[in-house]
Computed example of a mutant assay.
Amino acid sequence: MSRAPGGGQSGPDPARDAPRPDGALVWGHATQPDHVDAMAQLAGRLRAQRPGVTLLLTATPEAPLPETPRAGVIHAALPADRAPAVEAFLAHWRPDLCLWAGGDLRPVLIAGADRRGVPLYLIDADEGALGRSGWRWLPDAQRSALGRFMAIHARSDAAARHVRRMGVPERDVTVSGVFREGAVALPHDEGLRAEMAEGLRGRPVWLAAMVQPDEIGLVLDAHRAVSRLAHRLFLVLVPDDVADAPDFIAALDAGGWRYTVWSGGAMPEETTQVLLADTRGEMGLWYRLATITLMASSFGAGRQGRDPNEPAAHGSAIMYGPNVRRYLDSYRRYAEAGGARIVRDSETLAAALGQLIAPDRSALMAHAAWDVATTGARVTDQIVDLVQDTLDLLEAG
């Protein structure tokens, strides 16, 4: 989207946008890339607890929206910060409440929503975004805009101090932490997990998840190299598309591997080297069995990676390839915390795997990933509760 005069984005006129859906409509505004994913996850959490709720998502150019919205999410252009555009936007969408993330406040838009009685919440309030240079010449405008929010959730103590200096009462400011996509544990069959764990008898287990056909060789080469030193090493191999299972079976046959195909119904034996997990809906089981996970679909030009929050939520150390553009911010966050490690080819994958099969190393890395993942989840929990409470009050009249 291109910048439009008045600080908004060019885009469809609200009258030509999708119609407003029935039911509650939560308007979320993202000012950073992390906010886009976090808002989409928030929408999923809300819909699980309150079927029929929809998230209307707008964003600044610095936080581009994906081409395809997730279920329960509508993408819309942010109107220019001028009265006619603001009134058209608000009249069309009639949001029940607004979650404005970060900063980069739009005073005309915020004032217009407040006049219409839309409950406004500033979440992930960021001192840098709120204190950007343009506001130095308009301190009264910022004070006025901040004063229209019912509550402000700051990402840090410094952000909270900045907001209070701008005249917001202390009772309206909470330090919640950074609003980012958090990790949610996937369902699994605990009885089956316990049975498999017993059958593997303490063998080191690693998982190669969301593997593309052209990544099979890289994964199996690394597995073979490390197996020479740790002969009981066990690999759970998950295709990104289960329809590609015949390609995986052909590669396993060609390499002379002792393997089990999960869809065949057999359990791995003591001598099994690879389990081909060619069914859907069981990632929660595989993440829990593996102490180390390679998030594939991340090698080769054009790849974008897969979500690192999944293994982090289940206590698994994370390895990943160089092409993770779709989740780059998340991987950077995990890597900086010591919970994820980049590998570039079969040699570096084998080297990393050889180090991480030591239980103390993988446990340290998994714990670091878990800390990052659960922090994001806690903040999302607080915002879900805030939205639920507000919608309950609105429905009660």
Rank of each mutant, 00 (worst) to 15 (best):
G284I: 07
A4F: 09
T271C: 09
R94I: 05
P21H: 15
W137Y: 13
M1I: 06
A366I: 10
R326M: 13
V163M: 11
S227F: 04
F248V: 01
A296D: 07
P21K: 11
R165P: 09
L229G: 13
M283G: 02
D385W: 09
T260R: 11
I342S: 14
I249T: 15
L130S: 07
V343R: 01
A159Y: 10
A209C: 03
D240V: 03
T68Q: 10
P239C: 03
F149S: 12
E310T: 00
D81A: 11
L229C: 08
D157G: 09
M267A: 14
V238N: 01
D126C: 15
P84W: 07
T58Y: 02
V219M: 01
E282D: 11
G44F: 00
R344N: 04
G177W: 10
P19N: 12
D241Q: 11
G265W: 09
D157T: 11
R70T: 00
G284H: 04
G167D: 08
G44A: 02
R3T: 09
D278F: 02
E127N: 04
W27E: 04
W27L: 05
T54I: 13
A243F: 06
R115V: 12
P95M: 10
L349A: 00
L90F: 03
A337Y: 03
P12I: 08
L218I: 01
R171S: 12
M39K: 01
A373I: 03
P322G: 02
G134N: 07
A340L: 02
P139V: 09
I74D: 01
A209F: 02
I249K: 12
L353P: 00
R115A: 15
Y331I: 01
L276P: 01
D172I: 07
R326C: 07
L25H: 06
W286C: 07
R201D: 13
Y331E: 01
R203G: 14
G376M: 03
A76T: 02
H29P: 15
R132Q: 08
L394D: 08
I123K: 07
H153D: 09
V379H: 05
R193W: 05
A209S: 08
G354P: 05
M267P: 06
A111I: 03
R344D: 00
T279L: 06
S144A: 12
G256K: 06
A335M: 09
L220Y: 03
R341T: 07
V108P: 15
A59S: 06
G302I: 00
G315A: 03
A251C: 05
Q32V: 11
L186E: 15
V211C: 02
G199M: 05
L349N: 00
A209Y: 02
D189F: 06
G321P: 04
G147S: 13
A145W: 03
D247C: 10
V26G: 02
A80Y: 07
P12Q: 09
T174G: 06
G7A: 08
P84G: 08
R325I: 03
G112F: 06
P239S: 03
A43D: 02
D385A: 14
Q32H: 14
H231D: 14
A377Q: 12
G72E: 10
Q49Y: 04
L109K: 14
P21T: 12
W206G: 01
R232E: 13
D385S: 13
A145C: 03
F179P: 04
G305H: 00
Y331T: 00
I249S: 11
P359G: 10
G147Q: 12
L56F: 08
